[in-house]
Design a protein around this nucleic acid. Structure first.
Lengths: 358, 358
DNA sequence: GGAAGGCTATGAAAGGTTTCAACAGCGTCC
DNA sequence: GGACGCTGTTGAAACCTTTCATAGCCTTCC
């Protein structure tokens, strides 16, 4: 240590900021390869315009310096992102992860990447992620919204971030939407149970703020009307969420009813509820489907894997995701894009939980 | 149209690029509010240093212009990102989504957001996402790797992107890791089955490139040795992946064995396999646990919800994710950070699939 | 032999934000 | 009454890349 050091110690040299370990940028690469900045950029973005020799020099310089392109700077200048986001309602529900698989498929085909986010059915979280994604200037947002009337959601497209609503059909607005006809799904389920001779049927689902819950119940009621049955034949059990645990709770309530008042069949708003219900009822001694037939909704993989395979209303999950992503891509690349509402048709898959041995 | 126009038509005015619809930046906000650029930035980043009056002016200007902060520019200049990424093996496995939940929890507590990515057990995809995330300069990466010896993975930390390996303990290297003792888990499962009097036991799992599969089998063998049993008592059924479908296939093979050679118990490398196995065996007429006892691994929610509730080895999934995220945060904020290998202890949860009625 | 034209490579400008040294205004203290 | 300190605000530089008009060189063709 020299005397000098001691003197200058108090006023530290003060770098502008702590630099990342080895941040080699295009500049360093250009210097190492003996070319200009622009050429390095061309190697990255339009390799075909640069001569093979030069390209090789640049590429080897990149490799030896460990160059990593700074996406922020790229995006800032180029103005576009190569990323799509899917904001899910609940990552724990296999339905959504299957939709996500379809999204990824379509994105990969277009050379884009997908970031998944999950709102966990929390409106604040949803809002926070929407803000974040907008600030990131992602190419577009796919969302299964909690509240489809959110003003935040409506504002996004006018500011340049395309939005596609997944699994919910919006009446109007600045987005495309992709959904499955939930009313029809409900009808399918109840018609099936009526054909099997069931008279008193439970509808298990909630909360009523969730559009899917409402639509599926509406379908159930419609099927009863069509069959000329009184609406009172549908016993409604409301749950607090669409989870296995809530399904178990509903099972408890159901099994507790005296046998002569207990429904002989239950239609659940999704498979998680149905699986919980199934488990609880079986463990309380009810036989499925003899004492209680059960129909679920979504046909997730675990529906078939349950020891009493579950009859369920199948939705084209992956197709849903793929279509949504394709609509989004069209919106962001095709100047004549027109918003669409795509609706798919659900399909009843009959298994042991309603028909017994086949 | 003037004559001039006709003349200049061929050489189109050529905007630098098509601007996003209404891109109001800090500059526009500053102008509208009658303050300088720096003040707007202060409102965004250090609101406490700006006087309430000025702040109000700026905020109302922001609102009326629909200002959205450009995160790319922010990150470019500030050098740091407020985002964490978790690169999962398989979004369809509830185990990983539960881990993700823990990650989100910890991230939220620290004011960060989480992007989820899924490699779908595809090494190329994993590599592509790692590149992407590094280019995005995310604050750090949590990963359950396919190949934990990937050179790409090892390079990341030295270039400034911290990495924490989840659900895998690495022997060395530049990262922290968080894992559960899989060997012990295997031992727990087999010891339990031995105590129940089973003599011929199947181990169902694969492929052998997956560390978890290997470790759990190792634990199984160790338990047999400890009990003084020959290694041949463990019948190995190798699967191609850890999925429900593969479990079903294994069930088919198992049920096809003549009763006197068929194992009386099966230990599966994860719950997806176990659920598939359970379903197939039941539908082929085997009684669980009387004819075949089954132990799974992970204790995902569906394990308990299965109509024959599954005995399983429970891992602290959410805690795993939370701890991993905390290690990552420490690494990126604490200059004295030292890499750690955290190992949790698994726990056997006994249910009907091995013990019958309780 | 010289002009035209095709390839490549160059260098400066631009993109929106944060940062920070400097400054203005104003009350306080001696 | 002057120096000082405090609070709030300013303006320019810096972050790293992409873009594009232009320049240089080489070939080709008249």
């Amino acid at each position: 240590m020299s005397v000098d050091d001691a003197e200058t110690l108090p006023e530290r040299p003060r770098r502008r900021r702590t630099p990342k370990p080895h941040a080699a940028g295009v500049k360093a690469v250009a210097a190492a390869a003996g070319v200009s900045l622009g050429t390095v950029s061309n190697v990255l973005n339009r390799p075909e315009v640069v001569s093979p020799l030069t390209r090789a020099k640049v590429e080897s310089a990149m490799a030896s310096l460990g160059f990593v392109r700074n996406e922020s700077a790229r995006q800032l200048r180029a103005g576009s992102s190569r990323i799509l986001a899917y904001l899910m309602l609940d990552a724990g529900n296999p339905f959504f992860t299957d939709v996500a698989k379809g999204v990824e498929e379509a994105a990969q085909a277009a050379g884009l990447s997908v970031f998944l986010c999950t709102s966990s059915e929390d409106a604040d979280r949803e809002a926070a992620y929407l803000d974040l994604l907008e600030q990131q200037r992602v190419q577009g947002i796919l969302i299964t919204p909690i509240d489809q009337n959110s003003s935040r959601l409506r504002k996004l497209p006018s500011r340049g971030t395309p939005v596609v609503v997944v699994d919910r059909a919006l009446d109007e607005g600045e987005h495309c939407s992709v959904a499955v006809n939930d009313v029809l799904g409900g009808e399918l389920a109840i018609s099936h149970l009526l054909e099997l001779g069931h008279e008193r049927i439970a509808y298990v689902g909630g909360p009523n703020t969730i559009g899917q819950v409402v639509d599926r119940r509406e379908g159930a009621r419609r099927a009863l009307r069509t069959a000329g049955r009184p609406a009172a034949d549908l016993v409604e059990l409301t749950t607090g969420a669409l989870t296995v645990a809530e399904g178990r709770g509903a099972g408890q309530r159901l099994a507790g009813l005296p046998a002569d008042r207990r429904p002989t069949a239950a239609f659940c708003a999704n498979d998680l509820l149905a699986l919980g219900l199934l488990q609880q009822c079986v463990s309380l001694g009810l036989r499925v489907p003899e004492d209680l037939a059960i129909v679920g909704y979504d046909d997730i993989e675990f529906a078939e894997a349950a020891a009493v395979p579950l009859t369920s209303v199948r939705q084209p999950r992956q197709l849903l995701g793929r279509t949504a992503a394709e609509l989004l891509l069209d919106e962001s690349s095709n100047p004549d894009h027109e918003h669409q509402r795509v609706t798919f048709t659900p399909e009843l898959v009959v298994r042991t939980s309603t028909r017994g041995t086949l």
